[in-house]
Amino acid sequence: MKHSQHIARIIAITGLAASALALSGAMHIQPPTAPVTRAPVQNCHAAQSGVDRGRFRGPTEQAAKSAWNFSVVASVGPSYAKWNKARNADVTCGHDGKRLKTWTCTATAEPCDDGPPNPTPTPTPTPQPACYPSISIEGADTKLQSGAQTQSIHAWRGQVAQYGAIYQDWNKAQGKDITCRHNGLGPLQRRWRCVATGKPCK
């Protein structure tokens, strides 16, 4: 009797193990996936080179890299002058074959900078003043005083053009004044000149 119970217990345990194995196969259990580490985005420029000459190869290689740094700073900026971040970096050296060798090394690489490029800052426009300092200018001479006044205003507008058309309106000028004089001759030979003065305002 005890022997029969022992056999039944073994069969039950075997059945449970088989069920567990079948269940694990149906679930397709897979090992956890390691997180993907992405390399930082790089902004790179065209390859540049630095050259140097010296008696010993090691120091000459370093000097060539320094020459590369100076070239990169001058052309694309100091943030790219990082040899350890450069792409396709290479240093080639050779000597002249003489007993006291002179080494020539050339460092070539594409200068790169991590992260997105720095946007070019948009310059903030300088606000224009309501008025500029007063301007006085003499116009062309004419036979009539009224004509000389018109000529002086025309000359004033021409001078104010440097500030923009919005300031050329004589009617908006502040502190306006027109002074006129003539050459002192008789009515037939008299010529008038006027000076227009005013602060150009918008």
Rank of each mutant, 00 (worst) to 15 (best):
residue 193 R to N: 11
residue 179 T to A: 15
residue 1 M to F: 09
residue 134 S to Q: 12
residue 90 D to A: 04
residue 71 S to T: 10
residue 59 P to A: 02
residue 2 K to G: 13
residue 189 Q to W: 12
residue 54 G to S: 04
residue 191 R to M: 15
residue 158 G to K: 01
residue 100 L to V: 13
residue 63 A to Y: 06
residue 30 Q to F: 05
residue 45 H to Q: 14
residue 78 P to C: 05
residue 36 V to W: 07
residue 168 Q to T: 14
residue 141 D to P: 09
residue 155 A to R: 02
residue 96 D to K: 06
residue 96 D to P: 04
residue 1 M to N: 10
residue 61 E to I: 01
residue 28 H to C: 07
residue 115 G to F: 12
residue 71 S to E: 11
residue 161 A to N: 11
residue 35 P to S: 05
residue 87 R to H: 06
residue 189 Q to V: 07
residue 149 Q to C: 02
residue 32 P to K: 02
residue 122 T to L: 13
residue 118 N to W: 08
residue 193 R to T: 15
residue 74 A to N: 10
residue 113 D to T: 15
residue 140 A to K: 15
residue 132 Y to R: 07
residue 93 C to I: 00
residue 101 K to Y: 06
residue 20 A to T: 14
residue 89 A to P: 00
residue 177 D to H: 14
residue 22 A to Q: 10
residue 173 A to I: 11
residue 124 T to N: 12
residue 11 I to L: 14
residue 28 H to E: 10
residue 201 C to A: 06
residue 124 T to F: 01
residue 130 A to V: 13
residue 99 R to D: 14
residue 76 V to C: 05
residue 100 L to F: 15
residue 198 G to T: 00
residue 17 A to Y: 10
residue 46 A to R: 07
residue 51 V to D: 00
residue 70 F to K: 15
residue 149 Q to P: 05
residue 12 A to I: 03
residue 173 A to Q: 10
residue 179 T to P: 06
residue 8 A to N: 08
residue 84 N to F: 00
residue 197 T to P: 01
residue 145 Q to C: 09
residue 70 F to N: 12
residue 177 D to L: 11
residue 57 R to W: 04
residue 66 S to A: 10
residue 143 K to G: 12
residue 47 A to I: 05
residue 48 Q to V: 11
residue 153 I to M: 09
residue 179 T to W: 05
residue 55 R to V: 09
residue 153 I to V: 15
residue 65 K to S: 05
residue 2 K to C: 02
residue 105 C to F: 02
residue 32 P to Y: 02
residue 190 R to Q: 15
residue 81 A to W: 00
residue 192 W to M: 12
residue 19 S to G: 13
residue 130 A to R: 10
residue 46 A to Y: 08
residue 106 T to R: 01
residue 123 P to M: 07
residue 122 T to A: 13
residue 135 I to F: 01
residue 76 V to G: 08
residue 75 S to C: 01
residue 32 P to D: 02
residue 146 S to I: 11
residue 14 T to D: 09
residue 18 A to C: 14
residue 151 Q to S: 12
residue 93 C to R: 02
residue 81 A to Y: 03
residue 93 C to P: 03
residue 89 A to C: 00
residue 46 A to F: 10
residue 92 T to Q: 12
residue 108 T to H: 04
residue 88 N to I: 00
residue 94 G to P: 04
residue 170 W to V: 13
residue 158 G to D: 05
residue 10 I to N: 07
residue 133 P to Q: 09
residue 100 L to P: 08
residue 2 K to W: 04
residue 6 H to G: 02
residue 17 A to S: 12
residue 202 K to T: 15
residue 135 I to N: 04
residue 128 Q to T: 11
residue 142 T to L: 14
residue 169 D to T: 12
residue 144 L to M: 12
residue 198 G to P: 03
residue 202 K to E: 15
residue 198 G to D: 01
residue 114 D to V: 05
residue 68 W to H: 03
